[in-house]
């Protein structure tokens, strides 16, 4: 087993463990912390896939900004400490998850092997320059739409969270 494959398996195992912790921790703060770790691990996986810019954005935006927002809301609301476990929903959820995994496994076994090898990529693939080239040439309109979306989200959040009266 070569070093990249070994690294992948370590990262994959850790990210599965921590995402299970997100779901099965009963305290929302612990869930949030496990989610931060999962996002970091996925960012490292992005780095192994020659996507350094997206990996860094993942850490800045997800693990930084969004998770701080989550923690702030948990702190602000301070919900009653632990939720009860309900056997029916646990059963249904576990069955749904297992079915999905088997579905994906079945689907993935059809992928031809030569598609799995990966194309040769040039110098600077996934760096800021190439990302910006693609973003501002082929995706200018979606980029502008995304900025409008963010503006709408800001206005909406302020209106929704504003105290009435």
């Amino acid at each position: 087993m070569t070093a990249p494959v070994l690294l992948f398996f370590v990262l994959a195992a850790l990210s599965v463990v921590f995402s299970l912790a997100v779901v099965f921790q009963r305290n929302p703060v612990h869930s949030a912390m496990a989610l931060v770790v999962t996002l970091f691990l996925v960012a490292i996986l992005f780095l192994t896939l020659d996507a350094p810019m997206v990996g860094i954005l993942q850490i800045l935006v997800y693990a930084g900004a969004i998770m701080v927002l989550f923690l702030f809301v948990i702190m602000l609301l301070n919900p009653e400490a632990l939720e009860r476990r309900r056997a029916l929903w646990w059963g249904l959820g576990s069955i749904a998850g297992l079915l999905l995994v088997f579905e994906f496994a079945d689907f993935l076994s059809d992928i031809p092997r030569q598609a799995a090898q990966g194309a040769a990529v040039g110098e600077g693939f996934g760096g800021p320059e190439q990302l910006a080239q693609s973003l501002f040439h082929d995706f200018v309109l979606p980029f502008e739409v995304a900025s409008v979306l963010l503006l709408v989200a800001i206005v909406g959040a302020v209106v929704l969270a504003k105290r009435e009266g």
């Binding site: 779901v23 309900r86 959820g93 496994a105 993935l108």
Partner: peptide, 21 residues
Amino acid sequence: LDYYLFLSGVLFAIGVVGVVI
């Protein structure tokens, strides 16, 4: 490639389980 695809399938399924339970 399919290692990554399987990992993301598993993570997605865990997310689904979280939404349900």
